[in-house]
Design a protein around this nucleic acid. Structure first.
Lengths: 342, 342
DNA sequence: TTGTAGGCGTTATCAT
DNA sequence: ATGATAACGCCTACAA
């Protein structure tokens, strides 16, 4: 049954049921003023005729797209895809769809994507910033048009918006202190992009723990990178070739931490005895590598849920002043890669 | 600078530049008939005034959304997120955006999503089926309205559409033969949903390899499941408790294979000496678990690219009859989990 | 409870 | 090279 004619519209249904298009429009969304009978007739006809609402038309007229945008660096990271699932869970409950865009950690692409999101007229925006985005002008349009925004994880500190993040300082402090309590004396740190606040905070937490335990910070033990697998490997190599190499590494993500373990293993350096390693994120890799990786767990799904929940709260109650920061607890998950003491 | 008035439209630009809205519309898309000067003036004004095209309006009028839909089971799997990146690479080149939806492997949700995709009036659709979807009626709308579709990876066999898939039979055959050549005699198989073709083919390839090498197939060694981590663990447990347990497992995915290795390790059963394991997909986990996992690699990104390329080909040349099947080569990646012979 | 009519912002057609 | 005008499909005051 090829039916390549025109798409079915509410006018076609109206004709078929012998009511006005307006009535059809109302019936389809269960408007209270339409009689049960008419509503049923309309819906039956709509189904039989293969009607599907035309979202662009509806959006144009109603100025609502029932779509929220989610901007992330990449979806192929465990944290991000789980985070998105959390957002979707709430959005779907509210009858909303989710429009995902990836910046690939490039500011330029993030800007393009933000514009595309606005052109699509999303009803709200959830953002985790690209690694190298430094200006936030591209989000002004949303602000100026009262489109709710929530930033999550990688947030801009100097913007008056809702933010959801973990306590990076405390998490890093705990991770580092754990290494110290395991007897490590020279603890290296893999840090990320220096201007991205989450990495700044992790570094601060690391430094604070050293200081509080009377250990000296050593700049040669602190590296900056994108924290990719290759970077992790190379940084470990360099560190272990130092005149006085570290006896532990606290990495700002798991990817680089896993590389550190693998490099050490490849060189016959025993983990954790000679080199203790702690990561950040609790990616699936962490529990599978051997020795398993001690790391910081944070609830990605829950953070996604919270971000979406706050977004809808803003939409429904726009009187709300919206620049609160929510801090989510993390957990130090101790595994083999740092266990020196029984 | 709060500017919470009305959004800027081409009418506003028209007034400002003193031309008609039609001219603005054309200038903004570099229509050949508009003079360079006017075009520049219009664009400058558009920028200054903070204009962003209203996609819903444009879509309504032009019947093009410049959006293609991608339907997958879940994005938080390495294969899928890489696949999507491949699709996006091509789509972005063509000035298109990508609308992602997740079925969570549930037919019901896949149906809902298909309808939402049609309502959004996507210009094309790329689909990898949900684990348990058996009817394909929900894709009829697209067919009937001449909206191009490409199926990838998990494809329906009995639908006349473009399909891109790997040679599951051959890949499974190779994997199983490899185990046989390593001296394994009782090879178990973790299979997926019985009606999903990719799993059927993998099972067939497995059986064919056994047969060709004079080994008897044993139904007690073949399991069906969703191939999750828990399932992998439990199935391995059961198999190893059999009166005559297997000496190898060929799993239809890496997740379950990794669980098999972990269970064996937890029981002090050495891999690959007592139990050889081969997986499928070459997820990141495969090279990180110890012993590292022998598996089948297939080019996720490339498959995504091809799917998108075929979609645009169909759009641009709709005369094309579109029901070809493209088969992509796979590779057996041999690692430690199956290496019994030096 | 239902119908009428105008408009959302853009683009296509026809005219100039 | 540019303008006028209608139409895309739907929603929503306002009217009945």
């Amino acid at each position: 049954m090829k039916n390549r004619t025109k798409q079915v519209t509410i006018y076609d249904i109206a004709k078929s049921v012998q009511v006005s298009p307006a009535t059809v429009s109302r019936a389809l969304k269960d408007h209270y003023s339409i009689s049960q009978e008419t509503t049923q007739n309309v819906k039956r006809a709509a189904k039989e005729m293969g009607y599907f609402p035309n979202s662009p038309a509806s959006s144009l007229r109603s100025k609502k797209t029932n779509t929220i945008g989610v901007m992330v660096s990449r979806i192929n990271r465990p944290f991000m895809s789980t985070f998105i699932s959390g957002v979707e869970a709430v959005a779907n409950e509210k009858g909303c769809h989710v429009f995902i865009s990836q910046s690939e950690d490039k500011a330029e692409k993030e800007i393009e994507n933000a514009h595309a999101m606005f052109s699509a007229r999303v009803d709200g925006l959830i953002v985790s910033l690209a690694m190298d985005s430094r200006s936030y002008k591209h989000f002004d349009v949303f602000r100026n048009n009262d489109i709710p925004m929530v930033f999550a994880d990688r947030v801009p500190l100097d913007l008056e918006v809702n933010k959801i993040m973990i306590d990076n300082f405390q998490a890093a402090y705990n991770a580092t202190e754990h290494l110290i309590l395991q007897g490590c004396k020279r603890i290296a740190h893999f840090s990320g992009a220096a201007h991205r606040n989450i990495y700044k905070q992790r570094k601060k937490g690391y430094l604070a723990a050293l200081k509080n335990h009377g250990l000296l910070a050593d700049d040669t033990l602190i590296t900056n990178s994108n924290l990719g697998a290759n970077e992790g490997w190379e940084m470990t190599k360099k560190l272990l070739n130092l005149a006085s190499p570290p006896d532990a590494i606290f990495s700002a993500n798991d990817t680089a931490a896993v590389s550190a373990i693998r490099y050490a293993k490849s060189m016959g350096i025993s983990v954790p005895e000679k080199l203790a390693v702690v990561g950040f994120n609790d990616d699936p890799l962490a529990s599978i590598i051997s020795p398993s990786l001690t790391t910081i767990a944070h609830p990605a799904f829950e953070i996604g849920r919270m971000a979406a929940a706050q977004l809808f709260e803003q939409k429904e109650n726009s009187a709300l002043v919206s620049s609160k920061t929510t801090v989510v607890k993390t957990q130090l998950v101790i595994r083999e890669s740092s266990m020196r003491q029984g």
